[in-house]
Write a protein that binds this DNA or RNA. Structure first.
Length: 107
DNA sequence: CCACTGACGAGTG
DNA sequence: GCACTCGCCAGTG
């Protein structure tokens, strides 16, 4: 586990704030976490998570509304999609989410 | 300190 | 819509 001397907790907290059936982009979470241009850092922070995490990391997608491809194990991508669909999030034929409807406003 | 890598974003052609 | 480039921040060797 990395030193994480920085606001990982902020990122996790913001992600946890995302209501069910809603999604947020990396940039959005980053901004809310206090890192305006730290989209990459958000992704890294989420990558440090695992199944045992209480953080709904599956509600975080990229700016295109797609599930970001991770290093390996494409099976996890499927898991993320299943979890989202189970919460009511719909994927179009392109495999992405209509952010116009499901994007979290950050209330 | 430097170089490389990584769940990204925005801009350009 | 796709491919490429640059910029962002953090972690690791």
């Amino acid at each position: 586990m990395p030193a994480a001397t920085f606001s990982y907790a902020q990122i996790y907290r913001c992600v946890s704030r995302i209501p069910p059936g809603r999604v947020a982009t990396y940039g959005q979470v980053a901004k809310l976490a206090g890192i305006p241009n730290g989209a990459r850092s958000v992704g890294y922070a989420l990558s440090a998570l695992d199944d045992g995490s209480l953080v709904p990391w599956h509600r975080v997608v990229n700016a295109a509304g797609e599930i970001s491809p991770r290093s390996s194990s494409d099976a996890m991508e499927n898991t993320q999609r299943i979890r989202l669909e189970r919460e009511g999030v719909v994927f179009d034929a392109h495999g992405r989410i209509p952010l116009a409807m499901f994007r979290w406003n950050g209330e």
